[in-house]
Simulated scan of single mutants.
Amino acid sequence: MHWFYLAIAVIFEIAVAISAGKAKGFTNIPWTIATLISGAIATFFLSLALLTFDVGIGYALWTSIAGVGIVILGALFFGERLEWKKMIGIALVIGGVVGLRLSGAA
């Protein structure tokens, strides 16, 4: 169940990043509200996942997986460039996540 909680936390963390970008420095009120609500939900589900994961491992997984998701969604939907350097970075992050998982983190 902890992986399910972590997955929900990741989805809402991605929503935080997208909403924060649309909030324009918190001047766009609807997107600001979406940012704050998404952040609260992401943090809530992260805290549930951390009942099983070590804090450092859970947080590293959460931020890494969300970061990769944000970069990919930025390229797919927001016209952001996905250059080879970013692809190498994504591969390194994924390798790190796999390494954490193989270490018996959860």
Rank of each mutant, 00 (worst) to 15 (best):
I88G: 02
A9K: 06
A40Y: 08
V97F: 10
G58F: 06
G74K: 02
A17V: 15
E80Q: 15
G69F: 04
E83P: 06
I94A: 14
A91P: 05
K86P: 09
V93D: 05
P30S: 11
I29E: 08
K86Y: 12
S47I: 10
W84G: 00
F12K: 03
A42P: 04
V98Q: 09
G99H: 07
I41T: 10
F44P: 05
I72R: 04
L92T: 09
S19D: 08
G74A: 02
L76V: 15
L102I: 14
K24G: 05
E83A: 11
V16A: 05
W3D: 03
V16N: 02
W31L: 11
T52M: 01
A7N: 04
I65C: 03
T27A: 10
G89P: 07
A9Q: 03
F77A: 10
I29H: 08
V16F: 00
K85Y: 01
L48K: 15
K85H: 15
G58T: 09
G21P: 00
L76H: 03
A7S: 13
A75D: 02
I88P: 06
F44I: 13
A34W: 05
T27I: 09
G25V: 08
I37P: 04
G25E: 11
S47E: 08
G21F: 04
L50N: 07
M1F: 01
V55S: 07
T63R: 07
W62E: 00
G99R: 01
I88S: 00
E83T: 14
T27V: 12
F4N: 06
L61Q: 11
I72F: 02
A34L: 15
K24M: 13
G74P: 12
G69D: 03
K22G: 00
I37A: 13
I37L: 14
W62I: 02
G79Y: 10
G96E: 01
T63E: 03
F77N: 09
I90R: 03
I33Y: 09
G99C: 13
G56W: 02
F12L: 12
A40L: 15
F12H: 01
R101M: 14
L36Q: 11
L61K: 06
T52E: 11
L61Y: 10
A9Y: 05
M1P: 08
G79S: 12
G74D: 12
I33S: 12
E80R: 13
S19H: 06
K86D: 07
W84F: 10
A91T: 14
G95N: 12
G89V: 05
S103F: 08
W62R: 00
G67Q: 12
I41P: 04
T63G: 12
T32P: 13
V71L: 14
D54T: 08
I65E: 04
K86H: 15
I88L: 15
F78G: 01
L73Q: 06
A17G: 11
W62M: 04
S19N: 02
A9E: 03
W31T: 09
L82P: 09
